[in-house]
Design a protein around this nucleic acid. Structure first.
Lengths: 232, 232
DNA sequence: GGGGGTTTCTGACTATCAGGCGAAAACCTG
DNA sequence: CAGGTTTTCGCCTGATAGTCAGAAACCCCC
């Protein structure tokens, strides 16, 4: 490692905004700080970037140690915060990642860690509240023009269940009819052929669906003038 | 600054992918390396993050010193590269920014710096070629669902001129008719009321247009289920 | 087994928007 | 004034989002 007065060096940390839909609401994973500064406030999981790892590997490592999350279905880089005053103890640079956990899992969390609804965050440490805001914006945008939904949904699900997940993540009402047709037309969703045991109070049995691919793809090419005559 | 074996520190650099449409082609600003490694290869402008500056301020400073660019009409963070092997001399973390210069300017560049067409890049240093690729993707996407066009276009222009800029940046043909109407409907563009002196080989004089706002906004709310009854 | 209730699915209808095409408008030169 | 050039406008088409109502498929209870 090389450093000099002209090339100062900074501790770098990787942070994770891990989101999951729980009980119909979008939650973020936070841990409660025990030490100064911001004692008692809630912070994003993360930690120092080690000598030989990528930022992406670093986030994965920190999450794997702090929580039991091989369960992460998606992880992508969000943004890097560099305000010299963001940590009162001294300068650090932090790169935030967006992580998603599918709704059917319930990872075991350490004592000091908990899920918090994103629409009612507790007091947050550092600039972490604003980072969560960025993550929400990114997720909501990508839900609309990519297939990220796969990362929030269980392997198979009914259209109604998927609707609830989208509503929770987007923060506004959507109709199951429309969601179904749009995702089918885009080739994002497909029926498995199986049905759910109707159960509960009766009703027509629902067809199970799954995402065609479970890796991120752009499914809605943008609007202003697409490449000519490229049949989608 | 605090550092320890558990909190290693790394030199951090800010890089800029500065793009401009020149003579109907999208170009990127690169400088030719004189030293090892990658002697003779072309690199993105940038340099070390100093002790008291933000990454954004750092990019702006580096550009202002290397080139005469107060002329930058837009600057946004792109992504952070952290591969331990990305610089053979030792580990550095680099945060790349996307910068745009409007087409009517022709900034004075230093000896070692030049514009290169993005569709025919020379040999590039480090991971800079791939970073340019990311920048192109980001620009093209944003051209379609935001008003970033303002950052590539002069203060006023005819629809035909704007079309040429979009074609160069997007890399595929678009029709002036369509571009005009779409941008008008979205409230991105407006007519100034003035006309161009028809000049050259005759032809109907063209109406001058301008972007309604010259700061970034999202103009095309995404597709999968918008907030209900929000009249655009 | 029939009736009422519940949930899901399908099809029809509407509105909006992108994209293409051609005609009209407005200018030039010879 | 005729022919050429460039821009602008209006019309048409196709694709897609969004709404709504009705049909389909199941439950429970009498």
């Amino acid at each position: 490692m090389w450093s000099s007065p002209e090339r100062p060096a900074y501790p770098h940390q990787a942070l994770a905004v891990v989101l999951q839909v729980r009980a119909g609401r979008l939650h973020v994973m936070l841990w409660r700080r025990g030490n100064e500064p911001f004692t008692g406030a809630w912070a994003l999981p993360g930690g120092p970037l080690l000598a030989d790892e990528t930022l992406g590997a670093s986030v994965a490592r920190q999450l794997a140690s702090k929580v039991e999350v091989q369960q992460l279905s998606h992880l992508e880089q969000l943004e890097t915060r560099s305000d010299p005053g963001r940590d009162p103890r001294g300068r650090t640079v932090a790169t935030a990642y967006l992580g998603l956990v599918p709704a059917h899992l319930d990872p075991v969390l350490p004592e000091d860690t908990a899920w918090h609804p994103t629409d009612a965050l507790p007091e947050t440490a550092f600039d972490h509240g604003s980072i969560v805001g960025s993550a929400l914006g990114r997720l909501r945008a990508k839900l609309s023009y990519t297939n990220v939904g796969f990362a929030l949904a269980p392997p198979t699900f009914t259209v109604a269940e998927l609707r609830d997940i989208y509503v929770a993540a987007l923060g506004y009402e959507v109709t199951a009819t429309n969601l179904h047709r749009v995702l089918l037309r885009r080739g994002v969703l497909e029926a498995t052929g199986e049905m759910t045991p109707p159960g509960r109070a009766g009703g027509r049995p629902a067809a199970l669906h799954r995402f065609v691919t479970r890796t991120l793809e752009v499914t809605d090419p943008f609007a202003v003038l697409r490449p000519p005559s490229t049949p989608r």
